[in-house]
Structures are given as C-alpha cells and as structure tokens.
Design a protein around this nucleic acid. Structure first.
Lengths: 238, 238
DNA sequence: CTGTCGCGAGAGCACCGCTCTCGTTCTCTC
DNA sequence: GAGAGAACGAGAGCGGTGCTCTCGCGACAG
C-alpha cells in the first residue's frame, strides 16, 4: 500500500513541522521576532540547525508561517465571537467582535505585533497572508453592511454634521465597499475604514505602552471608544 | 586654560557622537532596527567596533538615542506646522498638524516605525522618551482645549447622538484632560483620545501596507478622515 | 617628570543564518 | 527482491554579529 507508507512519512513530516512551529511560536513570545533563532528552535526540538532547513528554507519563511498562523488565529477568534452573538443587535455584535480582537491581542501581544506592528524591513509579506489578514475586517464589514442594506433609503447618506463624501473619496474607498453585495455606500465605507483605524490604533497604542500614564482604566476607555464608534456608524442597539 | 582644552576634547567627543548617530540613522533607514549593526556603524565612521562602545554602552542605547531623536524630530515638525498656521480656525490648524504628522511619517517610515511600531521585546523605553513622545499629542490637545474653553457653557457636554460618559470613563481619562488649564471635559478628552487612535491607526495601517489594495488614493482618504474627526470633535471651520 | 585618564586597536568569546558534504534510511520501480 | 533515488539528520565551516578585555598611545594635571 504505497499511499499508506507515503502517508506515514508525510505524517512524520507534518508532525516535525508542527513541532518546529510550536517551538518557534514559543520563542517568538519569549524573545521577539528579531531574536528568533533557527539554532535555538533546532536545539529545542532536538535537532541540529541545518536539519531545520529541510522544513523551512529560511528564517524568514519561518516567520511568515507564524504570521499567517497569527492572522488566521485572530480571524477565527473574531469570527467565533461574532457567531456566538448571532441574533443580537448590530451594536452588540460590533462590540463583541471588537472585544474579541482586543482580547486576543492582549492575550498574545507578540503575535499581534507581528501582524499589525512594524514590518521587518526588507521583508515583503507573501500573497498567502492577504486572505487571512482580511478575515477580521470582513466580519466588521458584514455587520455594518447588513445594517445599511436594511435601512430605509431615506436614512441613507451622511447624517447631520457628517461631512459630505467627495467623488474622489467615493472612488478611493470603492474597492472596500464592493466587497459587499449590495455594495456599501461610500459614506459608510469611509466611516468604517475610520473605525478600523481607530480600533487598531487604540489596540496598538495600548499594547505598545503609549497610553501608560494617560488612560487609567483601559477596559473602561475601550468600551467607551466602542460606544463612540457604534454611535458614529449608526449601529442599532436593539 | 584648562577649560578651553577640556572644551576641545569634549567637542571632539560630541562630534564623534554625532557622526555615530548619523551613521546609525542612515543604517536604520536602510536595513531596519533589527539589523542595525554596531560593527557596520563603526566601519562607516572609520573605527573599530569596540571604539563605538566608548560612546554608546550598547546597541540598545544607540537605538534609544535614535528613538528619542525621532520623537523630538516629529514633535518639532508638528509644532512648526501648527505655529505656521497660527491665527487660522481650529479646524484648519487641526488639519495642518495632522498632515504634518502623516507627512513626516511617510517621509521617514523607519523612524515612525521605531516610535509607534512594535517595540523591541525585552526593551523598555527609558524615561527620557516620554517627554518628547508627548509633544505631538500636546499640540492636538491644545487645539481642542482652546475650542472647548471658548465655547459657551450651553454647548458643552456630549452632542446629539454622542453616548454619555460614565463616571468610570471620566476618571479614566482625567490625567489627559488635566494636562490643560482649564482641564478638558471628559467627553472631549475621550473623543480626542479616540481621534488620536484614529490618526496613528490610519498612519500605521497606511505605512505598514495594510491598506494596499483597499484604499486607492491615500491622500484623499486621509483628508476625508480628517474631515470626519473635525466634525466629531466639533472644531469650528471659521 | 610622573601619574592618570580617555581613547582606538586588536584579539577573542559565544552566538547567529546559512551552505555544503556525507552516511543513513526509507520508498518507489523494475 | 534488488537497485535507483529521494529525503533526512549530523557535522564542519564561512562570514557575520554583540560585547569584553587588554594593550599602547597621547593629552592632561599635579
């Protein structure tokens, strides 16, 4: 049975690949991406360093694997939290999804930093990373999209006090709006992109220590920030 | 004249220190903070690596110096832009200051990443960095503060559609509001912190490539984002 | 003139990413 | 069942790194 024996060999390979990834993830947590050492990983899994190169062609490819994994893990966490709140009002689902993102980031700051922190110079994320990277944004886009689609046409357009969207801006954000069917109107798309920036901006500031002596209770402030976003996006509370 | 000779000696020292910093800054731009090499800096300034340690006790201290320098440089850029717009309406000064931040970041992405990107694990920013780090935020705080202080008391408090600020959130953001005299009210402080997160979040997303295939014209979108913030903060246009 | 101190050079340590070679072992084909 | 071929782990080695230590030199102070 050749297929069985090939499976056995491949099984050993995937297991060792997993062991390497596990060790690398642990080392990423302990010493950070810059100091991630192939030799240390090899020592950890009981190999010599050159043997690791049978599984990952370079240190960068190891980091890339960790990056994709991080995007996927975060995306899954947010998707699961959102799914668990299915049936709740949009505002609640928005808060749940955003809290899931922040909780994941606080729980695994090193992996969040890998995904949304400064990229390693000279390193370009391969195409495999774009799909997992979009999962979180897709969830939020879906929440806003459903609300806008269900809203009577009279309520469309910028609310009172909201600046008008220029034609140039409408064209500019169109690729994002077009991800939905029906497409999200430009005003809402721009607002959502702003909320996305607020969300990641706050989490980054918080995680990277820039709010250290400025905001006393980060949980409370984040909740208030979500209230502001919910209001700005016009998400129904009930 | 002992003081003169000592001055001469110290002059040579500060000049060499500056040469090292210049070289390090250049290398930071080319290869990034992770690959910044003391030996390469030494080669660049015509020394042997051990000699550099007479000026900076470690590679980290060299990075710290670059970090402080970056904060100061950015702060100065924003302050200068804001000063040049003195007399203009608050909304205009807000836009000018924010554009200065984004322009600086786009011009020197490596230094922005050093300041607001993921911190190097195991590295804690010394106390010298907090003062320069606050300069940019202080400018924005000042713009909003003047507006709020000048506004008639009847217009205070959350606008229509703005969520109320809980007591806990009011206490939480109080350290920031207290930086101004008179202190910025909690609702405005929270809004400003949100705007700060939006600003840095957008610049980070833009610089780190997360808006690559999402937003076509980043200039246009950033301008619209500023319009949204101006409206949310209630900054007068004239 | 002598002692002290800061400086740059050099050697050296332990580590790194990565390459190459070598002997072994396992799988597939005839 | 035997041989071809691929995959594998080990080891040596290259050029690089941060950092330490020692050394000799020159400038300054007493």
């Amino acid at each position: 049975m050749p297929s069985a024996s090939r499976t056995a060999r491949d099984l050993a390979r995937v297991e060792l690949t997993r062991a390497i990834l596990d060790s690398a993830r642990e080392q990423l947590r302990e010493v950070g991406p810059a100091a991630l050492s192939v030799r240390a990983v090899a020592r950890d899994v009981g190999m010599v360093s050159s043997a690791v190169y049978r599984y990952f062609p370079s240190r960068d490819s190891l980091l890339t694997a960790l990056l994709v994994e991080a995007y996927d893990d975060l995306g899954e966490a947010v998707e699961r939290a959102h799914a668990a709140a299915a049936g709740s009002p949009p505002a609640v689902r928005w808060r749940v999804a955003c809290h899931a993102l922040r909780d994941w980031a606080r729980d695994q700051p090193h992996r969040y930093a890998l995904a949304y922190g400064s990229p390693v110079p000279g390193y370009v994320a391969p195409a495999d990373t774009v799909a997992p990277a979009g999962r979180v944004a897709t969830v939020l886009l879906g929440i806003v999209g459903r609300v806008t689609a269900d809203r009577p046409a009279a309520d469309r357009g910028p609310g009172p006090g909201s600046p008008a969207v220029s034609d140039a801006e409408a064209r500019s954000v169109e690729p994002v709006g077009r991800l939905l069917d029906p497409p999200l109107p430009p005003a809402e798309t721009a607002r959502l992109l702003g909320a996305w920036a607020t969300l990641l901006g706050h989490v980054s500031l918080e995680l990277f220590g820039h709010l250290e002596n400025a905001v006393l209770d980060l949980d409370v402030h984040f909740a208030h920030l979500l209230d502001l976003l919910v209001a700005d996006l016009g998400l129904p509370e009930g």
